[in-house]
Simulated scan of single mutants.
Amino acid sequence: MKATEVPEISGAFLFESTPYADERGFFCRTFDADVIRSVGLDPHAFVQDSVSRSVRGVLRGMHLRSGAGEAKLVRCSSGRIFDVVVDLREDSPTFLGRAFFELSGETQTTLYVPAGCAHGFQALSESADTSYRIDRPHDPSEDVTIAFDDPELAIPWPLPATSMSRRDREAPGLAEVLKQRKER
């Protein structure tokens, strides 16, 4: 497993696995505490694992948490997704930086999203399973959502959004979310 910095988002990393494939399928390591530790992260900080299954075109995001935020490890365990991170940490050297990735079950690459960054993705395959490992228990009262189609973000979603939650459809724009965060 190899760690690579994401230049557009300070503190974000890609953890690239090396799947071993043969006639049975493949095997690879998807989490390695020593590799996580080598980039200055605490592997024991992650306290909750979740998984979502999405069909082609489903869009989830853009999500983040208020308060202390939430760091997460994101991996597409099956299928393919277009994954997006936006840096919303006002003290970050990459504030408002955006990064786009294709994560897939074939590569098993894991993305580390630092706390204070918005995250979202769209399923590109007929079905996509996305795994999340987060560093704080989920508290719905801290959920923040930004409009996926905000012109200021200009995210190049590869497919029309076929389905999304009501919360995602009705999310405020980036300017409104940044204003609300300053008022807190």
Score class of each variant (00 low, 15 high):
K2N: 15
K2L: 15
A3W: 03
T4I: 14
G11L: 08
A12N: 15
F13W: 13
F13D: 08
L14D: 11
S17L: 03
T18P: 02
D22A: 08
D22E: 01
D22Y: 07
E23N: 12
E23S: 15
R24K: 10
G25S: 12
G25K: 15
C28Q: 05
R29W: 01
T30F: 09
F31K: 03
A33M: 06
V35A: 11
I36E: 09
I36L: 05
G40H: 09
L41K: 01
D42K: 04
D42Y: 04
P43W: 14
F46H: 03
S50Y: 13
R56A: 08
R56E: 08
L59E: 04
R60L: 01
M62K: 10
L64E: 00
S66Y: 00
E70I: 07
A71H: 00
C76G: 03
S78A: 12
R80Q: 13
I81L: 11
I81C: 10
V84P: 02
V85D: 09
V86E: 02
D87P: 01
S92C: 03
P93Q: 09
T94E: 06
T94F: 05
F95H: 15
G97T: 10
A99F: 08
F100W: 13
L103P: 15
T107C: 10
Q108E: 12
T109P: 11
T110L: 05
L111H: 12
Y112F: 15
C117S: 08
A118V: 05
Q122M: 11
S125Y: 01
A128Y: 06
D129L: 07
S131R: 12
R136K: 15
H138E: 12
H138Q: 06
E142Y: 11
D143E: 12
V144C: 12
T145E: 03
P151K: 00
E152S: 14
L153P: 06
A154Y: 10
A154W: 08
I155E: 07
I155P: 10
W157F: 01
L159D: 00
M164I: 04
S165A: 08
G173H: 02
G173C: 01
L174M: 11
E176T: 13
E176Q: 14
Q180T: 04
K182R: 15
